[in-house]
Simulated assay, not measured.
Amino acid sequence: MRKFLILTLILTIAGFMMFQIKPVKNTAKSLTAALEPLNLLNKDSLTIKSRVNVPKGYKRVDYAKGSFQDYLRNYKLKAFGTKIINYDDSEYYWQLGHIGVLDIPVPKNGLQQCADALIRVRSEYLWDNNRKDDIGFNFTSGHYCSWKKYAEGYRPKIKGNQVTFLKTASENHSKENFYKYLNLIYMYSGTLSLYNELPKIENAKALKIGDMLIKGGSPGHIVMICDEVENSKGEKLYLLFQGNTPAQSVHLVKNLEHSNISPWYQLKKGVRIPVSNYTFGSSKFVRFK
């Protein structure tokens, strides 16, 4: 009887192990397929638009030259194969989810995380296009902090959730001071403040370059659309880039779930969307004003 029980136990354990091994093999196979060389890439090209080819049957959606959409689509990339580097110069542990690194410096202070990287991109566009007075963001507390007032010398006095702005510095409209302003925004803003502040996009068919897929929270995450193509049926695909936590190189991501169209993504509202090493459980979208 004892031998029978021992034999039964051995067979049960063996059966359980066989059941466990099979999904692991399938997962590894799927991951390998997702990481196979991509045929939509021009590895020698150094902009988002020129790095990624349009899938068969699609064409790029037109945007006016000088628009934010045109700015993002033509953003400069570093050489193909450039690794994602953390703010402290260490290599990020996950190097298999991107097909390009944007030419954006990563401050050594560790502040420029996921939402901050997109805030920087938007702010630099406004700066470069003589729209400096449009630069401003809400703190997580809901208080608005503009570059214009910061340049005039106003600084926030923060006590709990109470924020007041007092003129405590000399007027300074320099680019160096602009980046000090951005560091302040990085400290007191994030995915939650952006989600609460920015207009929501309820119809995913209205998405365009510059819009963001967001999970507002602590922690949350956010990625930005940086290119857009459409077929004759009106179906669209998008490219995405992201910053991350810890602060690191801003990078153009692969589509690890649908390698047949990677790095392009289909985007819908309210669905699960895996992006590199993060999964948005119920997709929501916002747009800069």
Rank of each mutant, 00 (worst) to 15 (best):
T27E: 12
I119T: 10
E228I: 05
R60Q: 09
R2N: 12
K254D: 01
F165M: 11
Y195N: 15
I6F: 00
I135G: 05
K132Q: 14
G66E: 15
R155Q: 11
N130I: 09
K25Q: 12
F68D: 12
I6S: 06
I85V: 15
W94G: 07
L207N: 06
G234Y: 07
S259F: 05
A169M: 09
E202C: 03
S218Y: 07
Q248E: 10
E36Q: 13
D70Q: 10
K236V: 03
K167Y: 04
L256G: 03
A206P: 00
A64K: 15
V121K: 01
T245I: 03
S218T: 13
G15I: 08
G136C: 06
K268M: 11
G66P: 02
E171T: 14
I135K: 03
R120M: 01
E230F: 03
P23I: 04
G97H: 06
R51P: 00
G216N: 09
G153K: 06
H251W: 01
L31P: 00
K49P: 01
H251L: 03
F139Q: 07
I261G: 11
N130H: 11
I119R: 04
M212Q: 06
I261W: 05
L7N: 11
G234W: 05
N74C: 05
T8Q: 08
T32A: 15
K3P: 04
Q248N: 08
P274H: 11
N172I: 11
L11C: 13
W264C: 05
L267D: 07
D227F: 04
K175Q: 12
Q248F: 01
K25D: 09
V54P: 01
S174Q: 11
N129Q: 11
P107E: 13
V54Q: 07
Y75C: 04
K167E: 13
A28D: 13
R131V: 00
K43N: 10
Y75Q: 07
L5E: 11
E36D: 11
G100F: 01
P156Q: 14
S174G: 10
L192S: 11
L256S: 08
N203T: 15
M1R: 12
V61Y: 03
K159F: 04
D103N: 13
S276W: 02
R2K: 13
K65Q: 13
L41V: 07
L102M: 09
G15F: 00
N109V: 06
T164A: 08
Y58C: 06
F285Y: 12
V61S: 07
Q69D: 09
H221P: 00
V250D: 02
R131Q: 15
E230N: 09
T47I: 02
E176C: 07
Y92Q: 04
T191Q: 05
L252F: 02
L5Y: 05
K268I: 05
P23Y: 04
V271D: 14
K76I: 00
V275H: 03
G243W: 01
Q69A: 14
I99P: 00
A34E: 12
Y125P: 01
I119A: 05
E230T: 15
S141K: 08
C226N: 09
I21C: 04
I48H: 03
L240I: 14
N161E: 13
K43W: 01
L111M: 10
I85F: 02
L239P: 01
N177F: 02
G160E: 12
H143G: 01
L198A: 14
S232T: 15
K254G: 00
H251N: 13
Y58M: 07
K175D: 06
H98T: 09
A206Y: 04
K233L: 10
Q20G: 06
Y125V: 00
E176V: 12
